[in-house]
Simulated scan of single mutants.
Amino acid sequence: MNCVFIQLRCKPGKTYEVAEAVYAREITSELYSTSGDYDLLAKVYIPKDEDVGKYINDHLLDIPNIERSLTTLTFRAF
């Protein structure tokens, strides 16, 4: 599994709706509300044989009211 962190910027007033939709898909191991430029932070484990970008597009970014995302790939844990 590849661990990635995905930050989501939502349309104003839509953060809770987006969070509920993300949670309902059961693809995140953790989901947080955050301050700053992005509204939500999701920790997602992507299967090794999946293309990271395609997986995120197909499973997450088609949720309505997401304006922008920022994905951080992780590497070896220390």
Results as ranks from 00 to 15, higher is better:
Leu61Arg: 03
Pro64Ala: 07
Pro47Arg: 03
Asn57Leu: 11
Asn57Val: 06
Thr72Ile: 10
Leu60His: 03
Phe78Trp: 12
Lys54Glu: 14
Tyr23Pro: 00
Ala21Gly: 00
Gly36Phe: 11
Cys3Thr: 15
Ile46Asn: 03
Tyr23Ser: 12
Asp37Met: 14
Ile63Val: 04
Met1Cys: 09
Phe78His: 11
Gly53His: 05
Tyr45Leu: 12
Met1Asp: 09
Lys54Gln: 12
Tyr16Ala: 15
Leu8Gln: 04
Leu40Thr: 01
Thr72Gln: 13
Leu31Gly: 06
His59Ile: 03
Arg76Asp: 15
Thr15Val: 13
Arg25Ile: 01
Arg76Phe: 15
Ala24Ile: 01
Tyr55Phe: 11
Arg25His: 06
Thr28Arg: 04
Thr28Asn: 12
Lys14Phe: 10
Ile63Glu: 00
Glu26Gln: 14
Leu8Asn: 02
Thr74Asp: 02
Met1Arg: 13
Leu73Asn: 09
Thr72His: 14
Gly53Thr: 07
Leu70Trp: 11
Thr28Pro: 04
Asp62Val: 05
Thr15Lys: 14
Lys11Thr: 12
Thr72Cys: 13
Ile46Thr: 04
Lys54Phe: 12
Lys48Pro: 13
Glu17Gln: 14
Arg25Asn: 01
Val52Asn: 12
Lys43Ile: 08
Tyr23Val: 05
Asn2Met: 13
Asp62Asn: 13
Asp49Lys: 14
Val44Trp: 05
Asp51Thr: 03
Lys43Cys: 06
Tyr45Cys: 08
Leu60Gly: 00
Ile46His: 06
Arg76Leu: 15
Glu17Arg: 09
Ile27Thr: 02
Ala77Ile: 13
Tyr32Cys: 04
Ile6Asp: 00
Lys54Cys: 05
Leu73Gly: 11
Ala19Met: 11
Val44Ile: 13
Cys10Ala: 11
Val22Met: 02
Thr34Gln: 08
Glu17Thr: 10
Ala42Met: 07
Gly13Trp: 09
Arg68Lys: 15
Glu20Met: 09
Tyr38Ala: 00
Ile27Glu: 01
Glu20Asn: 14
Val18Gln: 06
Val18Ser: 04
Pro12Tyr: 11
Glu20Leu: 07
Cys10Glu: 06
Val52Pro: 04
Thr34Arg: 08
Arg76His: 15
Lys48Trp: 14
Ile66Lys: 08
Asp39Asn: 11
Thr28Gly: 13
Tyr32Ala: 01
Leu40Lys: 04
Ala21Val: 00
Tyr45Phe: 14
Arg25Pro: 01
Pro12Arg: 04
Lys14Trp: 03
Glu67Tyr: 10
Pro64Thr: 01
His59Glu: 12
Asp39Met: 07
Pro12Phe: 10
Ile63Gln: 02
Ile27Leu: 08
Phe78Asp: 11
Asp51Ser: 09
